[in-house]
Amino acid sequence: MHQHVTRLLATALILTAAACTTSGSDDKPAATTKTTSPAGKLSAAWTPKLKAATKTDTGICNQAGDQACAEHLTDIALVVDDLETAINGAGGAAAYPKTTAQIGKVNAAVEAYTEHECLGDENASIQGSPCPDDARTIMAGGEALQLALAADEAG
């Protein structure tokens, strides 16, 4: 159920971002696939995807309501959603407890960013707005997932 809600929220972010975009960009991460490495470890396949999705110019979300920020957050949310699907097919939370917990944090931040209507809000970055925290949680969560995957597979 939660994954379904997250997929809907990510789709809403994408549609909103697409509606506001006037030109395409070729520097977005490649489409993700739901595969595991030959050894059955997800980190080999998903660490590069997470790195690609989280790679960005410094300060892209200094203005949490900007289109560029929303597109970056959407890229992360989509990879995280696909990773969640891959984890469900590879033993779920029992096999990847740290990763699953981190995915929950990212999903909650995606929901919050959407509920707070951050995209296009000129006040999204003012003091007291929850939007910068939502954006930081999504970005940091994408980075932290790389470590969580490694920790789950090492332990």
Rank of each mutant, 00 (worst) to 15 (best):
M1A: 09
H2N: 15
Q3C: 06
Q3E: 10
V5I: 10
V5E: 09
T6P: 04
T6H: 00
R7Y: 03
L8Y: 10
T11M: 11
A12Q: 14
L13Y: 06
L13K: 01
T16R: 15
A17F: 12
A17M: 04
A17E: 15
A18C: 12
A18Q: 11
A19K: 04
A19E: 09
A19T: 06
C20I: 11
C20Y: 14
T21D: 15
T21K: 13
T21V: 09
S25W: 13
D27H: 08
D27N: 12
K28T: 13
K28E: 12
A31L: 03
A31E: 05
T32I: 07
T35P: 06
T36M: 12
S37G: 07
S37C: 04
A39S: 11
A39W: 00
L42A: 13
L42M: 07
T47K: 14
T47V: 15
L50N: 10
A52D: 15
A53F: 06
T54H: 08
K55S: 15
T56K: 01
D57T: 14
D57V: 15
T58R: 14
T58W: 03
T58C: 13
I60N: 03
N62F: 01
Q63P: 07
A64S: 10
A64Q: 01
G65E: 03
D66G: 11
Q67K: 06
C69H: 04
C69M: 08
C69I: 05
A70F: 10
H72W: 04
L73Y: 03
L73Q: 10
D75L: 05
A77K: 09
A77G: 12
V79S: 01
V79W: 01
D82W: 06
E84T: 13
A86K: 04
I87K: 05
N88T: 11
N88P: 01
N88H: 04
G89Y: 03
G89I: 06
G89V: 02
A90D: 11
A90S: 15
G91C: 15
G92Q: 05
G92T: 00
A93I: 04
A93T: 12
A93P: 09
A94I: 14
T99H: 12
I103E: 03
I103H: 05
G104Q: 01
V106R: 00
A108M: 10
V110E: 04
E111N: 10
E111S: 10
Y113W: 13
Y113G: 00
Y113S: 01
T114G: 01
T114V: 08
H116M: 08
L119I: 02
G120Q: 07
E122G: 07
N123Y: 03
S125F: 02
S125R: 00
S125C: 02
S125Y: 00
Q127H: 07
S129V: 14
S129W: 10
S129K: 05
P130G: 03
C131K: 00
D133I: 09
D133M: 14
D133K: 15
D134K: 02
A135K: 06
A135F: 04
R136Y: 13
M139F: 08
A140E: 11
G141M: 11
G141R: 00
G142Q: 02
E143R: 06
A144S: 14
A148F: 03
L149W: 04
L149T: 05
L149N: 06
A150K: 13
A151K: 13
D152E: 10
D152P: 10
A154F: 15
